[in-house]
Amino acid sequence: MTCLLCDKPLHDQPTWQHFLGMQQDTFACLTCLEKFERIDQVIQNDVLDSVHSLYAYNEAARAYLHQFKFMQDVALAQIFAPALRRVLNDAKKIVVPIPMHPVNKKKRTFSQVDALLEAAKIPYQSLLEKTTESVMGEKSRSERLAMTELFHVPADIPYNEAVYVLVDDIYTTGTTLHHAAEALKQRGVHRVEAVTLFRPIREK
């Protein structure tokens, strides 16, 4: 095995725990993993009952997302699988990924949030549908805030009492998550939480 990020060989010894399936596979070396800064920041606002961001959006995170999303390196979804699994392992919560527009998904050949969840082996329900082809990363802050209705919910939601967890790769201005939560709440969902992999933090 080599590290997915730096291609250096991983020095993993075969162990009984691994053979019996009690130990997870490793996909990246410690040096690469240390470059990601764990923050576990939780915030709240009126629509979203909690937003949990796992890592700071630093240089390593930028490079990671570039290789994962734009170079289309699906294999990189494995790197954060253990971290996501630990946060999302509550069976009572229903995990809902932020979707991509079908046209964009076809262009990229995969949806990054679905890939992250599949790598982490977390069951999810694709309840949302993206209505526009436009991408958040290409917009200014004011343009983002002025947008209307990004998502709609095509099917009925059976369990309004359950907690729904939205998952996205990055939380920037919060517009995407805000719209998604709004769409769910309009259908009568009581509590919507969110988990994002990265979030930009101000340098001290």
């Binding site: 080599t2 170079m71 050949t109």
Partner: peptide, 26 residues
Amino acid sequence: ARFTVFTCAQCEAPCAYCRNCLNMGR
């Protein structure tokens, strides 16, 4: 070991890509 298989939205089938020359376009 340098190939990764994933469910491709373009060809709608399991699809393998090469990680050896990834940085020149997948």
